[in-house]
Design a protein around this nucleic acid. Structure first.
Lengths: 280, 280
DNA sequence: ATACAGAGTATTGAATAATAATACTCTTCT
DNA sequence: AGAAGAGTATTATTATTCAATACTCTGTAT
């Protein structure tokens, strides 16, 4: 099941276009810190593009665009801090368990996730489906909470996954309910790359999809990222009426038809999203 | 349900007692990188101890033991990189979605988690229970994969959570199957703090519990970390026979009695852990 | 077996880039 | 309205990061 032609999760610029914030060349920008993070990021890239679970020093240096000495210093530091493992036999580096701390820190600071969690668990039991929460990050969405039920492809079940907002149902419903300027900016920053043969990448078609999602209050993506996946999403609003997240429920053909999805899943997604919104 | 007297997740030294690896004072240790991470870690501590979801610059400076200038530089850098949010109104900082990337990176590099995931999903459906995978990190265990079913306390459902190995069922079964020297070292590093009135903290009693777990091949903790929780765990071994993880299933009294847990949950945990082990 | 290439590790002087002090501005509370 | 506290911007100083280099190890090929 499921196919996705080594589709790179978009990633690139997390940079939250500085609200008067300092930029990369300021004296207040600590370059060493960025280099350290660059080393960590390289592992995600290597996984995606090369299918590698670990990396040698020279590979890290190459991918992170650091010289050998710098790579040496940063890997050593990261190992000492518990964020990278070093296999003493192979001398290769891999991500370490310490990295999980950051996700925990983020999620625990996230009121939306906290409020959503019990409702998502409940919703997932209704039809034994996966239920996800996602939010916007640059022009991607990131899955923050996942209640997995289907045995989908591994990456598709892990929180922290990034996919382009324009083609993911969760992204579409968030974009649909954002102020126009923000939406336009994000679409301008998006590269409309296809994940499957069915991915809607034509900009006018993408806009139509978004407009429809705004009118109807939900979106269904058919094989947009994973083939045979019907991805239903509804927006979550905070108390100021801003679309801050999306509740997304994927189901798979042929177990689920489009009709049954409309009938059962759409109302569940909308209702759950609404319940979360009311509590925010 | 559930109580836990503001029990600090232990955290402290991630430091994987350097295997000939450089230490903190080497020229190969980049201090700026550590300071940056110290700022991020402070948020977890603040959550735990102060219940704060966001922090002011001065609070960060105090907690991270940095002067105001340093705090300023590091927060600015982290905001630019997308790892902290800054609320322009309140000027307070909070963890940002970018942090979720690291968990994803780690989990995708983790063969055990990948193999465990589908079996855990299956197992969770058997009795509609939560199923977790955890591994050792210093003297803690960290939950790496969680399939939540019960509406337990929020923190208890989030991957990345840390609890002391000595009192968590998952920790006990891992410790039980580690080489004696390693086990002794970890116990020596542990601070036997109680989470509940029922937590077994007496060192000889802890050792007895561990020995029993080794003999029987599983452990059940009764209200060890959360009251009314019956926590069942079984060890996962890699192909060299090393205990690399634990499969843990929590159920709650009075829905579940100790007897039914023995009868239903223990075999499920053991069987699932074994199935994972065979595939490693 | 031996030699060679490639990769990883350790050391060091140089200077860049991080630092800490300080002055300035804004906010908030009395 | 004024004062205190917090956040921001700027600067000279020097400690810390840096990159070059030499050394050691590992594994492969001859």
């Amino acid at each position: 099941m499921a196919q996705d032609p080594q589709a790179k999760d978009s990633h690139a610029a997390l940079d939250p276009q500085g609200k008067g914030v300092t930029n990369r060349s300021d004296t207040l920008f600590v370059g060493s810190l960025e280099k350290g993070f660059r080393v960590l990021r390289v592992f995600r890239q290597a996984q995606r593009d090369l299918g590698l679970r670990d990396l040698s020093l020279t590979e890290i240096a190459k991918l992170a665009e650091l010289d050998k000495s710098a790579a040496q210093r940063f890997t050593n530091t990261l190992v000492t801090l518990g964020y990278l493992n070093k296999n003493p036999r192979t001398r290769r580096y891999s991500p370490a368990i310490g990295l999980a701390d950051f996700y925990y820190t983020y999620i625990l600071s996230n009121r939306i996730a906290e409020i959503a969690m019990p409702r998502m668990i409940e919703a997932s039991k209704k039809f034994d489906t996966t239920v996800n929460l996602c939010e916007l990050s640059g022009s991607d969405i990131v899955y923050t909470i996942r209640i997995p039920h289907e045995k989908a492809r591994y990456e598709a079940t892990v929180p922290g996954r990034r996919v382009p907002a324009f083609c993911a149902a969760g992204g579409v419903v968030i974009l649909a309910n954002l102020p126009a300027v923000e939406r336009d900016q994000i679409l301008a920053d998006s590269s409309f790359r296809a994940y499957t043969d069915h991915t809607i990448t034509d900009p006018p078609a993408v806009r139509t999809r978004i407009d429809t999602a705004r009118e109807k209050g939900f979106d269904i993506g058919e094989s947009q990222i994973i083939i045979h996946e019907l991805s239903t999403a509804a927006p979550v609003f905070n108390s100021e009426g801003r679309a801050v997240a999306a509740l997304q429920i994927p189901v798979y053909q042929p177990d689920w038809t489009l009709e049954r999805t409309w009938e059962k899943i759409v109302p569940l997604a909308i209702e759950t999203a609404r319940a979360i919104s009311y509590s925010l």
